[in-house]
Amino acid sequence: MKRRRLIRLASAVTVMTLGGVGYAAHRRSSNPYYGGPVSDHFDGTRFFSPGQPQDKDLVELARWQLGGRREIWPSHFPSPFAADTPPERVAGLRVVHIGHASLLIQVAGRNILIDPVYAKRASPIGFAGPRRVNPPGIAFEALPPIDAVLITHNHYDHLDGPTLARLWAEHQPLFVAPLGNDAIIRSYDATIAVETRDWGGTVDLGGIAIHLAPAYHWSARGMNDRRMALWSAYVLTTPHGALYHVGDTGYGDGAIFRTVRDRFGPMRLATLPIGAYEPRWFMQAQHINPEEAVRIAMEVGAAQALGHHWGTFRLTNEGVEQPAMALAAALDAASLPPDRFLALRPGQVWTG
């Protein structure tokens, strides 16, 4: 009985952290976050990625959770890079990995955080769920003045409510998020200023345009709000070139990535997820693997790519170092030099 309770707890945390299944979401017909018009990716209650698979069912979740083949992670996986102390402003382009999917982008005098997570666990509960195995690559107190915070979607490894509330209290940045996520963010502080946009929408940051672009993913904050808030990638058009950031996505047919290049031209930089991809039969629709990440970098014409979403929170089956090793193999297979696509570690700085 104890084992069954632990499995149920692990499954519930997985649903809320990764958005793994949609069986419970269909019990609720109203959307608590968003009430806009029907579109080609919103049916009036739930968002979806046109032409792409959406939900796994409970049987598939149980098959994954009970299937074994999970590599053991160390309790600590410290970064070889010391915690960074960023300059207050940067005229050019500087990127620092905070950990997992959290990045600080300093460009053209602006400081932009993406999916900042400072929690010890990427989980809705404090005593269970994926635990951080290395400290943030920038201490919260060492952050420079933050002008904007971009949220890609509402899973707990990307939207950390207490961190967002603290950022608002200390920096009062502009928050940008896909449709519906404003209600979630403001549940942590009702005064937070959030600009929400649909795919294709743009927010101006004074010399930098923030564009929301499609991703093949989904959303869930609890057991009953499956796909009720939108998810997105971002393109930042800046004086130093176009920057493409994906929080989570599957590869699908690749059309959304080719569209990014068609609309914005070749990317100066692409920051792409490279972890949380095993087992492929379960994860392929929602998380790319390193080989697909290399393919995307090439399709968007990225002069440089940086890999995130690995090595901090254990979400799936692969070992802690496997994404970096798989990325190296994928670059070699594509005849690309290793420094063209770096697997970032917390505190690691890239300038361009």
Rank of each mutant, 00 (worst) to 15 (best):
H287V: 00
M283P: 01
A276P: 14
A293G: 01
I274E: 02
W281C: 11
I274V: 11
P279C: 11
L306H: 12
L306F: 01
H309V: 13
E292H: 08
H309Q: 12
T312P: 09
I274F: 02
A302Q: 07
G311L: 13
A285C: 09
G275V: 07
A276E: 08
G301P: 09
Y277A: 03
P290T: 08
W310S: 06
W310E: 00
M283K: 04
I288H: 06
W281A: 10
N289M: 06
Y277G: 05
A297V: 10
E278I: 09
A285V: 12
Q286Y: 05
L306E: 02
A297G: 13
V300N: 07
E291V: 13
P279Q: 06
E291C: 15
A297E: 04
W310I: 03
M298Y: 07
M298L: 14
R295K: 02
I288Y: 04
A297N: 05
G307K: 00
E291I: 11
Q284R: 15
I296G: 03
V294N: 00
Y277R: 03
G301S: 12
I288L: 05
G275N: 06
A285I: 13
H308Q: 14
I288S: 07
Q284L: 11
N289P: 05
H287P: 01
Q286G: 09
G311T: 09
A293L: 01
H308G: 07
A305P: 06
A285G: 10
V294F: 07
W281N: 05
H308T: 10
A305E: 03
R280W: 15
G301K: 01
E292Y: 00
R280N: 02
A302W: 12
G311D: 13
I288C: 05
N289V: 03
V294A: 04
Q284V: 13
I274K: 00
N289T: 06
R295N: 05
E291Q: 14
A303P: 00
H308N: 08
V294K: 00
Y277M: 05
W281Q: 12
P279W: 04
A305F: 10
R295W: 01
L306G: 02
P290H: 04
H287I: 01
E292Q: 15
A297S: 09
Q286R: 11
V294C: 06
G307Q: 03
W310N: 10
A293M: 05
Y277P: 03
E292V: 00
L306Q: 06
I288G: 00
A293H: 03
G301H: 03
A297F: 14
E278P: 09
A276L: 11
F282I: 15
Y277W: 01
